[in-house]
Design a protein around this nucleic acid. Structure first.
Lengths: 211, 211
DNA sequence: TTGTTTTCATACTAACCAGTCTAGCACTTG
DNA sequence: CAAGTGCTAGACTGGTTAGTATGAAAACAA
């Protein structure tokens, strides 16, 4: 998987890498809080680093931004979703997937990243495409593969069902956390999880009998 | 329902209202295309109006932006979703709801508005709350009421099921159009609609028998 | 016509920002 | 110690922006 960022690497020394890390951490806080319109001065200040140092590690603002998103996608990719949950039976599997997805609601970084990628998807289509290619598509693929392989369930279109499950979970995060819907229309996430599990299991079994 | 915008109204004459309309139309094109960071000069130019005229109709940039979003929410609220579809039977009703929701994928203004509201939900939480209160909550409410009233289906938690349906539809729009997923992971919307209808009907009937 | 209101074009302000430059400081390595 | 390398603080350039000011041209009303 190729990376997008084209930052220069002026040093392979441990000191250089350390500064680079500080810059990325500062950029993370500032970009996630203020969006792409955050100023490079603010990022340098937050990182506790001179502005020139930022520009000696990253070509320009766009490169820094891309490198950061790239890094964050990697970070959230590895978090959660081990292989062993594929061994679970259908109810446990779906519940586990839902729990992992919704647990990200508590993660300010994840919620902010999602908002940022959607908000900047007009200006930076590459980034949202990267998000889709690295996070959404593989996730849905694994889910669909499980549904296809499991003989407790039998859907005529497992790919579409995978998207329904995934979509209802992601949209729960968006509407509750990003759009601040948890005040106007609150719903405990366990209720949501239970209904998704029920819906899929009932439908999967009924669909099996009908075929 | 109270409005958010606090623009001044310097004239109640027809000429004034006409200018105000031109300004809002220009602001619509520019804000939806470039986001909130669009410049007031660009908006005035697009509206074919002097910059000063913009400021004589709207207090500042924030007021103009709020007034525009307010207006757009009203516009999309009235479009589609008549009362008579409530008379349809379950399969037709769910299909119709799904078709109406997904038909908005073709509407550049709707897609851009959704991106804008999500993207600016950090800077302008009032706007996303307004969106939730005026569009999402009533929509889900109607859907849940239908599910509750219909005796072909029987869900233990109709509100949660309504959110699942709504979420999978909205997220389909987001992932396909906003995040440009239609290239990397295309799916015909009819396939999505069919699966949602099947899922809900199978589960609704199975759930009924189980109770 | 005369007076009032609105719009127009333009210029201006004060602030902000991306990116560059300079000159000196600090650390590391030979 | 000496040379090299990365870091720092700050100033600077050229450009953009929100919002204001001005003075004249229209549009309208009496």
């Amino acid at each position: 998987m190729k990376t997008i960022s084209d930052e220069q690497k002026p040093s392979l020394s441990p000191r250089g890498a350390e500064k680079r890390e500080k810059i990325l951490e500062g950029a993370l806080r500032v970009f996630l809080a203020q969006g792409y319109s955050a100023s490079m001065d603010a990022i340098a200040a937050e990182a506790g680093v001179a502005k020139q140092t930022v520009y000696s590690h990253f070509k320009d603002k766009h490169s820094l931004f891309s490198a950061l998103i790239d890094r964050l996608l990697d970070h959230f990719l590895t978090a959660g979703m081990t292989q062993e949950i594929l061994l679970l039976d259908a109810p446990s599997f779906i519940r586990k997937v839902a729990q992992i997805s919704l647990s990200r609601m508590d993660d300010w970084e994840y919620v902010s990243l999602l908002r940022l990628i959607i908000g900047e998807s007009g200006r930076f289509p590459e980034l949202s495409e990267l998000y889709v290619a690295r996070m959404v598509k593989p996730g849905i693929q694994k889910l669909a593969d499980y549904l296809r392989a499991n003989d407790q369930l039998r859907f005529s279109d497992p790919d579409a069902v995978a998207r329904i499950i995934h979509g209802s979970l992601i949209n729960f995060v968006i509407s509750q956390e990003i759009m601040h819907g948890k005040h106007a229309m609150p719903m405990p996430r366990e209720r949501m999880i239970n209904s998704i599990v029920d819906l899929v299991l009932f439908a999967g079994e009924a669909s099996k009998q009908a075929s």
